[in-house]
Design a protein around this nucleic acid. Structure first.
Length: 855
DNA sequence: GATGTCG
DNA sequence: CGACATCAACGCCAG
DNA sequence: CTGGCG
């Protein structure tokens, strides 16, 4: 355990930070004021647009981390009390499973302890909400979770905490936890719905409203006219204008429908909304804007479009989680069978607010009175589309009405002209200008502008551009296809007004404002472009190679071994340098096994006693010269950039990353569905190695009887791996079937020493035949791979003659393996990469042989 | 081991 | 500056 | 359905 109060760092920056932090503390709503005592604190922080919460365990101003277990605790389960505090005790409850609570219109939420339901507060209804749903519903709700709240005075915030691995897993305390915290959860008491519904009905009855069905299929929506400029006006309400699709959501006889403006039904596309509408407590017809929020919590038109295009159930299910939709409801047309359209807007909205739950994917659109201009200013700063002004006493009438006015903003930016398209029809001069902006040394294509020109300007532009139309400028991005583009070197700058940026980084609704003679094209920097998402990835399609190759961008396949003296094997004194040296030296024999195969690394950055982790996806920082293969992973629904390794330098690089163990796919990237071998892993787990040898020989005997070749290697740990070459001529399923068949035969022929039993206790000291590591994406410990075990053993190919008790698991290691390999004419295992056996012959013999064996 | 993020 | 988190995954089968 | 297994 580290000291509770380490040396104060010298750095000014840190001192300043602490001063600032201490100043902030006094204003914390939680935990009170005055000197801090050790304990659990929920720290609030205000940023520009929202509240953040953080849970920390501190002592004397020093962050200890909330997750570090405090002091010895005999009972591993007890450790969760590590977040116990003296002055602010916590309540907690492990919650059991998740009940998708369609109830109360909250959409998905957690119902806990039957007395509360939980959802994220509105501010968080962006990606974080999506992530929560993803974790809860999608995939990850496997660990233990705890719902915690402090009992600090006035506290009502709760936290959902994923219990760290160290708590969940016994006996692995040295592995530090990975955690997930969802903070700032709102916990609500369940309302007494029936009573509420009753009183609302009585109220509606008393108002003598017309009882008439408002048909969501045919209802004519009220539309806004466009205001010339932002305005403030008494008697008017101002709402945010959301960038999405207009949507009519209806609940009729308990059934939900979602429709776009033209009446097409889309409940299937947005199931999370349909569920929420269905779960409303009242039959009603809502009018609103369908949006998908991005991670900043701002509407993202691009994301919405992505969702609208989905057809497949699985895609929808995924996007529902990654890009959850939100319906911002701003009007209520009908309620419990009453037509409300004759009511003034203000009253409709008051009813709407009562009908909608406070949280969940259907959100009530708040409004401000009168002060539209100020609101507009603020809204634009936040990057939103604009505001809607509405007359507070106006009834709801279909069609475009002056009672609703939209005030839309526009961005203006300067862009360099990198080309133009030829005019069509009666157009003179040119069709549109292709625009780009500068990102570092590159030009990024941002789309084309084809409107806003005067005829005179059109002519003039053409004259100025044509003479320079010589080489195609180099830029990144994809110009609109289907038009003939004439490329010019950037020399001209235009000012363009545009609505927004599209998801792929193009200008939306651009129009030309004027020429900017005073500006150099190089000054048009992408990051200065208004509204441009800072972190946006540029489109990855590089246009043709630069005319002048950048000064021999030395494709230097080198790196420096970091910390070569770091001890990786404390018992043996072997260092990281030894590891890298071994992998370099063995690479002539290792590389044939790695070539073209996706790798899975097990990395031990701090040696075999330190923490470790698997890695499939090559991080962005690995140098270009490390080969990677992008492979779609169905299970995680994303691409994974697998490491591939064809040369010594790459192996060494991986070793320098702390990679001790290398696993390879049985198939190569060229034929990912066709394995080159089937494998059977002989795992003794306590059984004598002599039995492993016996079982291995039996496998070989059976395979030979049916004309199947076999090769064998030590696993490097305790057992042997037997491989059957398949030459990429069959499927993974067939390979597994073969391995299973042979395993079963062996297990039944040698019942005293071999078993297929997976539960260790049931194996009774027999050798476990594991045929399950055959399949797509399944991996095998690579031959010559080092093991993170004392003595640094390696997985070593053997000839069948060498399969004896003497060549046990510990016989080969990083110090003797190279010497051994050097004596070979050829790697005895290499046959596994050879041609396929004659499957016809194999099958022919199989039947007979099985009968003989089973007799 | 390398990186990003947060305070 | 320092502390953290992150870096995989899936079918099988017993209880 | 969860948990252990590799």
């Amino acid at each position: 355990m580290k000291p509770a109060n380490p040396q104060p760092p010298e750095a000014d920056a840190l001192a300043r930070y602490r001063a600032r932090r201490d100043a902030e503390r006094t204003s914390e709503p939680f935990g009170g004021s005055g000197p801090r005592r050790p304990g659990l604190f929920v720290v609030h922080k205000h940023s520009a647009t929202r509240l953040h919460y953080d849970l920390r365990l501190e002592h004397d101003g020093v962050l200890l981390s909330w997750a570090v277990p405090k002091g010895p605790s005999p009972d591993p389960d007890e450790k969760r009390f590590a977040v116990h505090v003296e002055d602010h005790p916590v309540e907690y409850a492990d919650f059991e499973g998740v009940i998708p609570a369609d109830n109360y219109g909250a959409g998905p939420s957690i119902v806990w302890d039957r007395g509360y339901w939980v959802n994220l507060p509105g501010e968080k209804h962006g990606l974080e909400h999506g992530k929560l749903l993803f974790d809860l519903y999608g995939h990850k709700l496997k660990g233990r979770w705890t719902l915690v709240r402090t009992r600090a005075p006035g506290a009502r915030e709760w936290l959902l905490i994923k219990k760290p691995d160290a708590f969940a897993r016994k006996g692995e305390a040295q592995k530090l936890p990975e955690t997930s915290i969802y903070s700032g959860l709102e916990v609500h008491e369940l309302p007494d719905l029936p009573a509420r519904r009753e009183s609302l009905r009585a109220e509606l009855e008393a108002r003598r409203l017309p009882r008439a069905r408002v048909d969501p299929r045919t209802v004519e929506l009220m539309l806004a006219e466009t205001a010339d400029a932002p305005f403030s006006r008494p008697g008017w309400l101002f709402e945010l204008k959301y960038d999405g699709f207009r949507m009519v959501a209806a609940r009729e006889d308990g059934k939900a429908t979602l429709r776009y403006r033209r009446g097409n039904e889309v409940s299937r596309t947005f199931p999370e909304l349909a569920v929420a509408v269905k779960a409303l407590a009242y039959d009603c017809v809502l009018d609103g804007e369908l949006v998908v929020l991005d991670e900043r919590g701002l509407p993202s038109f691009g994301r919405l479009q992505q969702r609208t295009q989905l057809e497949r159930e699985a895609d929808i299910a995924r996007m529902q989680v990654t890009h959850p939709a939100t319906l911002f409801a701003f009007d209520l047309l009908s309620l419990e069978g009453y037509d409300l359209r004759g009511l003034p807007l203000r009253e409709r909205k008051a009813l709407l607010r009562r009908v909608l739950p406070e949280v969940g994917p259907i959100r009530y659109v708040e409004h401000f009175e009168e002060r539209g201009r100020e609101m507009y200013e603020e809204v634009r700063k936040l990057g939103l589309e604009g505001v809607m002004g509405k007359r507070a006493d106006a009834p709801y009438k279909g069609g475009r009405r002056p009672d609703w006015l939209k005030v839309k903003g526009e961005y203006t930016g300067e862009f360099a002209v990198v080309g133009y398209t030829l005019p069509k029809g009666s157009r003179t001069g040119l069709g549109a200008l292709d625009l780009a902006a500068r990102d570092g040394e590159r030009w990024i294509y941002v789309g084309s502008v084809g409107t806003g020109f005067t005829d005179r300007l059109l002519q003039g532009l053409r004259a100025r551009l044509e003479p320079e139309a010589i080489p195609k400028p180099v830029f990144v991005g994809t110009p609109t296809p289907g038009r003939k583009h004439v490329w010019v070197n950037p020399s001209l700058v235009v000012e363009v007004a545009f609505g927004d940026w599209t998801a792929d980084g193009m200008l939306r609704h651009p129009k030309l404002v004027r020429l900017r003679e005073d500006k150099a094209p190089e000054e048009c920097r992408l990051q200065d472009a208004p509204g441009h998402p800072d972190s946006r990835e540029p489109p990855a399609v590089p246009e043709p190679a630069p005319a002048v190759a950048p000064a021999a961008r030395a494709d230097a396949r080198t790196f420096t071994v970091t910390h070569p003296e770091k001890v990786f094997w404390p018992e043996d004194g072997y260092t990281k340098g030894d590891l890298v040296a071994y992998y370099r030296a063995i690479s002539p024999w290792l590389l044939p096994w790695l070539k073209d195969r996706p790798l899975v690394l097990t990395r031990y950055p701090d040696g075999i006693r330190g923490k470790s982790f698997f890695q499939k996806d090559a991080p962005a920082f690995v140098p270009d010269w490390i080969r990677r293969q992008r492979i779609w992973s169905e299970s995680v629904e994303r691409d994974v950039d697998y490491f591939l390794c064809d040369d010594e330098e790459s192996v060494a690089y991986l070793a320098n990353l702390g990679t001790i163990l290398l696993h390879v796919w049985a198939s190569r990237v060229q034929t990912p569905q066709a394995p080159d071998w089937a494998s059977i892993d002989l795992d003794p787990k306590g059984a004598p190695f002599a039995h492993v040898v016996q079982v291995a020989r039996k496998i070989r005997e059976i395979c030979e009887a049916i004309d199947l070749p076999t090769v064998v290697k030590t696993s490097g740990s305790t057992g042997l791996h037997v491989l059957i070459p398949l030459g990429a001529r069959c499927t993974h399923a067939e390979a597994r079937g073969l391995a299973e068949l042979i395993s079963r035969v062996v297990a039944s022929t040698l019942p005293d020493i071999a078993t297929l039993e997976r539960v260790i206790a049931e194996r009774g000291g027999r050798v476990y035949l594991d045929y399950l590591q055959n399949g797509y994406g399944k991996v095998l410990v690579a031959p010559y791979s080092v093991r993170p075990l004392p003595g640094a053993p390696v997985s070593m190919p053997l000839s069948w003659r060498e399969v004896t008790e003497k060549n046990g698991p510990k016989a080969f290691n990083i110090k003797n393996a190279v010497r051994r390999a050097e004596k070979w004419k050829a790697d005895p295992l290499l046959a596994a990469l050879g041609p396929a056996p004659d499957f016809g012959k194999v099958l022919a013999r199989l039947g007979d042989e099985l009968q003989r064996l089973m007799r």
